[in-house]
C-alpha cells in the first residue's frame, strides 16, 4: 500500500502571480476581508486539504528584492497572518492553519503564545510556517539594522524555533489542578523555566499559556536548518483542463507583470500535477491565481489523487499533528 500524500496549499491575496488580481473571478477589492479568506480556506477544507499557509511579511510585496518598487499595478498589502489565522479558525473545521511568521523580527515568547492560542481556538489545528527574513528594508520596519549573513539569520531562526518549542513544553499536561482544599490552582512542579541561553535569545519562561492541545503545534519551513517538523518545497501552479490553456494563461499574466526568477513553476493539467506530486518531496502548492488555480487543485487535482487512493476523502479524527503522521509530541520536561 502506498502512503498517503499530504497536501499543503499556500494562500496569498489574489494568488502568487502579481497580476492575478486582474483575472476574471478575482475579488481584488475584498482581499482585506474575513469573508474572502474564509471562502478560500473553506474551498480547501471541502477538498480535505491538510494545511493552508497564510502568507505574510513585514514589508510590502515588491519586484525588487532590495526595496519597494514603484509599481501601482500589482497586488500590494498584507494582513497580519496570526490575527487572520485566529479569525479564520472558528469558521473552519478539520483543516490545519499555518500563519507565516518571521523568526528574524519577532519575539519567540509572543509567537509561542500566539500559535498556542490558535491551537486552542481551532481545537488542535495550528501550525506555523517559520520564515527567515533577510532583507534590510524589511528589518528596518521592525527597527533592526545591520542584518547579519543569511547563514547567521538561519541559526537565529533555529534558536527562535527552539525557544518557541520549549515554551510550549514549559507547562506539563495536568499542571492546572484547582486544589481548593490546599488553595493551589496549579502544581508548581509541572511548570518549568526553559532557561534558554543562545547567541540571539536568552529567555527564561515558563510560558503564560498552558501546553496547547497538540502539545507541539506543527512547525513548517521552506528551507532546512530551522528545526521544523516538515520542510516543504514551493511550487507555483497554473492549472487548466488542457495544457495549452494553462500555458496561454501564464503567458497572458506574465505579459502584464513577469512572475520573477527563482520559483519552481508547474504549468499544465490537474492530472499532470497529480502525477508530479506522487513523485515529489513534500510540496507547498502555490496557486498562481485565486480562485482559479485553487479550484483546479480542490476540484481537479484532489479528486484525481482520491481516485488513485493517495489522499483521504474526509478528515480523520484527531489533531493536525496526528493527521500528518508526526506522532505524539512528548514533553521534554515531563518526568
Amino acid at each position: 500500500m502506498t502512503k498517503n500524500l499530504h497536501l499543503t496549499v499556500g494562500l496569498a491575496g489574489a494568488g502568487w502571480h502579481p497580476a492575478a488580481w486582474r483575472e476574471p473571478g478575482a475579488r481584488p477589492g475584498e482581499l482585506l476581508t474575513a469573508r474572502w479568506w474564509i471562502d478560500q480556506v473553506v474551498e480547501a477544507q471541502e477538498a480535505v486539504i491538510d494545511l493552508v499557509t497564510i502568507e505574510d511579511a513585514l514589508a510590502l510585496q515588491s519586484s525588487d528584492p532590495d526595496g519597494p518598487d514603484d509599481r501601482t499595478d500589482a497586488t500590494r498589502g498584507y494582513l497580519d497572518a496570526i490575527v487572520l489565522a485566529a479569525r479564520i479558525a472558528p469558521a473552519t473545521r478539520g483543516i490545519g492553519i499555518a500563519p507565516v511568521v518571521t523568526t528574524t523580527l519577532t519575539e519567540p515568547f509572543h509567537v509561542s503564545t500566539q500559535i498556542a492560542t490558535i491551537d486552542y481556538v481551532s481545537d488542535g489545528r495550528a501550525a506555523w510556517l517559520a520564515r527567515v527574513a533577510s532583507s534590510h528594508w524589511e528589518a528596518a520596519h521592525a527597527g533592526r539594522r545591520g542584518l547579519p549573513s543569511r547563514e547567521v539569520l538561519r541559526a537565529e531562526g533555529a534558536e527562535h524555533v527552539e525557544v518557541v518549542r520549549r515554551l510550549w513544553d514549559s507547562w506539563e499536561e495536568g499542571a492546572e489542578i484547582r486544589d481548593a482544599e490546599r488553595h493551589r490552582f496549579v502544581d508548581r512542579s509541572k511548570l518549568h523555566h526553559i532557561d534558554f541561553d543562545g547567541e540571539r535569545f536568552r529567555i527564561r519562561g515558563p510560558s503564560i499559556t498552558p501546553r496547547p492541545p497538540q502539545g507541539q503545534p506543527v512547525v513548517l519551513a521552506t528551507e532546512p536548518g530551522l528545526g521544523a517538523d516538515l520542510v516543504l518545497e514551493d511550487l507555483v501552479v497554473f492549472l487548466d483542463d488542457d495544457e495549452g490553456g494553462a500555458v496561454g494563461r501564464r503567458d497572458r499574466l506574465d505579459a502584464l507583470h513577469p512572475l520573477g526568477p527563482g520559483v519552481d513553476v508547474f504549468t499544465g493539467t490537474p492530472s499532470g500535477l497529480a502525477d508530479v506530486l506522487e513523485e515529489r518531496p513534500p510540496t507547498r502548492l502555490l496557486p498562481a491565481a485565486i480562485p482559479h488555480d485553487l479550484r483546479a487543485i480542490t476540484r481537479g487535482v484532489v479528486p484525481e489523487l482520491q481516485s488513485r487512493g493517495r489522499v483521504p476523502r474526509s478528515y480523520a479524527a484527531g489533531t493536525l499533528r496526528e493527521r500528518l503522521g508526526l506522532g505524539a509530541a512528548t514533553n521534554r520536561y515531563a518526568a
Binding site: 496570526i82 490575527v83 509572543h110 492560542t117 490558535i118 481556538v121 499559556t209
Partner: peptide
C-alpha cells in the same frame, strides 16, 4: 495562565 489576548480577540 492565560491564552494570548489579541489572538483570542481575533477569534
Amino acid at each position: 495562565g492565560r491564552p494570548e489576548s489579541f489572538t483570542i480577540l481575533a477569534a
